[in-house]
């Protein structure tokens, strides 16, 4: 498990997020997305707090948190590497790109490197189909980087 490098969303901050949506029950997914964005994962205490503030039964909060791909109940790395597995990328060799990245990082899909720098994820289409196969590091996209490109690109991230 990587060391915690950032503080979790404090409950105050979660309150502020919830207030932004007027504390409405229907904002559950939006609230969780905001917390996920700040913390990069959803901790149990965050989920409990959201459940009680929005007055949604805890199992329903968990159901939402485990249903959508954007959420993670485990701590993630500082940077997210997302390899697109959409159809266009698939027929242009995304499985091989994925293997390349996976070998370089030494982790499998959904896993985080030991130093906590990167988490490796797959996604079913980022809509960059014309450039496939594509991967994104956080919000920067890269079209079919070679093994050498990858080394150079990855070294730019702390």
């Amino acid at each position: 498990m990587p060391e915690a490098t950032e503080e979790l969303c404090s409950l105050d901050r979660i309150d502020r997020i919830i207030d932004r949506y007027g504390g409405q029950r229907s904002a559950l997914i939006q609230v969780l997305l905001d917390i996920q964005k700040e913390d990069k994962w959803l901790a149990e205490e965050s989920l409990r707090h959201v459940a009680s503030r929005l007055n949604v039964p805890l199992p329903q909060v968990y159901q939402v948190a485990t249903f959508y791909k954007a959420f993670s109940l485990a701590r993630r790395g500082r940077h997210l590497i997302t390899v697109c597995m959409g159809t266009a990328c698939h027929v242009r060799g995304s499985p091989r790109l994925f293997d390349r990245v996976s070998q370089k990082l030494g982790v499998g899909p959904g896993k985080t490197t030991h130093d906590g720098r990167f988490s490796l994820l797959t996604v079913n289409c980022m809509g960059c189909c014309a450039l496939g196969p594509v991967l994104a590091i956080d919000e920067d996209y890269h079209s079919n980087p070679s093994a050498a490109d990858l080394g150079r690109i990855l070294s730019q991230y702390e």
Partner: peptide
Amino acid sequence: DEVKHTNCIGFVGR
């Protein structure tokens, strides 16, 4: 959920 309103169990995952 609907009868007991206790919400002890739920679905997880998809």
